[in-house]
């Protein structure tokens, strides 16, 4: 009896390996997405159109990663009919993959705006938007950390600190909007470029929101709690 308890069945071991693989796929996907946001904003700041184009091309691999993760999850649900922590882990992985995919779209969106703006002279030196971007990417990293921990108290702690960052991103976003608006008011010729930058800032703000969604999924995974 004692021996039997200690031997975890082969099927269970394989299941654990598959879950580990799923987690690795998510970590990889998240790395792609972080890089995409960073590259999109750096390209915008440096007016590096080739780099913007690369961000757009590379979004395909983010989409593919999501499809692969989705397939893995469907396969695991079908094969294992998972219960309890296993079920929560697979469901949360599906949800996180879709959040990451959307973040990838924001990076692509920023890259497209950069290309549309093309070689127009810069409206102003970009400081606050890249700062928002750094904060959002950092939030994304920690949200994933919360997810990987699968631990209720880690998730709770990270959630508290991420909420503060999310507020900081929102504040910065408000400041960016006010600054751009002032530029438009001072010279209506600025309107087009200011609008583009407004979109960029909006995309970055959404990245932070999605990071918060990922923490929400991490909380579900760790505690089974859904919603607030």
């Amino acid at each position: 009896m004692k021996e039997r308890r200690n031997i975890i069945s082969k099927g269970r071991q394989e299941f654990d390996r598959d879950l580990g693989r799923l987690e690795a796929e998510l970590i990889l996907m998240s790395g792609l997405v972080e890089k995409a946001i960073f590259n999109a904003l750096t390209a915008l700041k440096n007016r590096d159109l080739a780099r913007s184009r690369r961000v757009i091309d590379e979004d395909d691999s983010v989409d593919e990663a999501e499809v692969e993760i989705e397939k893995s999850c469907i396969e695991l649900i079908r094969r294992q009919a998972p219960m309890a922590g296993d079920l929560r882990r697979i469901i949360a992985s599906l949800q996180v993959a879709s959040e990451l995919e959307r973040i990838g779209d924001y990076a692509e969106g920023i890259a497209k705006i950069s290309i549309t703006m093309g070689n127009q002279p810069p409206l102003k030196e970009l400081i606050d938007i890249p700062r928002m971007g750094d904060m959002a990417v950092n939030m994304l990293k920690r949200a994933l950390e919360a997810f990987i921990s699968r631990d209720a108290s880690s998730v709770r702690a990270l959630n508290v600190s991420l909420e503060k960052d999310d507020d900081a991103v929102d504040d910065l976003y408000a400041k960016v909007q006010a600054d751009l608006m002032a530029l438009v008011k001072s010279n209506p010729d600025n309107a087009e470029r200011a609008t583009y930058l407004m979109w960029v800032a909006h995309n970055v703000e959404r990245v932070a929101d999605r990071a918060m969604n990922i923490v929400e999924r991490a909380r579900y995974q760790a505690t089974g709690e859904v919603g607030n």
Binding site: A84, L87, R88
Partner: peptide, 18 residues
């Protein structure tokens, strides 16, 4: 019991670890 068991042994049982 099947979604979020309170007892670690339940979790282990319903997920096929014991």
């Amino acid at each position: 019991v099947f979604g979020n068991p309170k007892d670690a042994r339940t979790e282990a049982y319903v997920t096929g670890r014991i």
